[in-house]
């Protein structure tokens, strides 16, 4: 099973095994927290030199998702760039790559805490975006309904097993929190604070990986 299909705010959605969310009726592909340029930012700030292949890897996977879903709208849920400078200093090759991916479809960058302003990278930059009963934004708001957000990089694994945690979608009646799609991203356990406040116990986690695997939040490990 490559995706977990479910209904949320009257919309039929698919949580894909790759960490992308697809809304077939709208042909909308949503990814969160790409953190492009993270290796470059770490180098700039700390001097460390991580393998500089994460932009390539993230864009390759994003390209494959766009091709697989034939998305007409691509919506990046914020923190697409590790900081504004990482966006501004992006090399020519990935920059042109992104522009190529944007051709022929609508492309929306939502602002995140890492990239809170428009970038010179095509597409439109918005603070949030609403379609039907669903609102997309970077960070979840406490009392929101029908909200899709990112920011926390949730991950999950079943309790009492030695299976390692994987990036996961968290889904409950009022909101969905997307896993980070970027290659160089860590994660926060599904039941750790503040996620436990945002997603109630009756919710689900959908683990990414070779297949999309859904399990109850209450059966996820606390860390």
């Amino acid at each position: 099973m490559n995706a977990y299909s479910f209904t949320f705010a009257d919309a039929a959605l698919e949580a894909r095994h790759t960490g992308a969310l697809f809304w077939p009726a709208e042909k909308l592909l949503c990814v969160s927290d790409l953190h492009l340029g993270k290796a470059a930012r770490i180098n700039r700030r700390e001097g460390r030199m991580l393998p500089p292949y994460e932009v390539t890897d993230t864009l390759l996977r994003l390209e494959a998702e766009i091709a697989a879903t034939e998305a007409e709208t691509v919506l990046c849920l914020g923190d697409s760039f590790d900081d504004l400078l990482a966006g501004a200093e992006l090399e020519d090759e990935p920059r042109e790559w992104i522009l190529r991916l944007q051709a022929g479809r609508r492309w929306i960058w939502l602002e995140g805490n890492h990239d809170p302003a428009p970038l010179d990278l095509g597409g439109e930059t918005l603070a949030d975006h609403t379609r039907g009963r669903i609102t997309f934004r970077h960070i979840a708001q406490d009392s929101a309904q029908g909200e899709i957000s990112g920011h926390y990089h949730p991950k999950a694994r079943p309790e009492r097993t030695s299976i390692r945690a994987r990036p996961a979608f968290l889904i409950c009646g009022s909101r969905i929190i997307l896993p980070a799609f970027g290659t160089y991203t860590g994660g926060l356990a599904a039941r750790a604070a503040p996620l436990n406040r945002l997603i109630d116990d009756s919710g689900l986690a959908v683990m990414t990986g070779p297949r999309a695997v859904a399990l109850p939040i209450s059966a996820c490990a606390a860390r």
Binding site: E46, L50, P51, Y53, E54, T56, D57, Y152, H153, A180, T183, Y184, T185, G186, G187, L188, A192
Partner: peptide, 24 residues
């Protein structure tokens, strides 16, 4: 100062290994 940043900011060395194995 850096140790305090959130847990979602840190990622595992496995990711670095996989990336190198794939690209270098």
């Amino acid at each position: 100062a850096q140790r305090k940043s959130g847990r979602q900011a840190t990622f595992s060395s496995d990711i670095l290994y996989d990336t190198l194995l794939k690209y270098d």
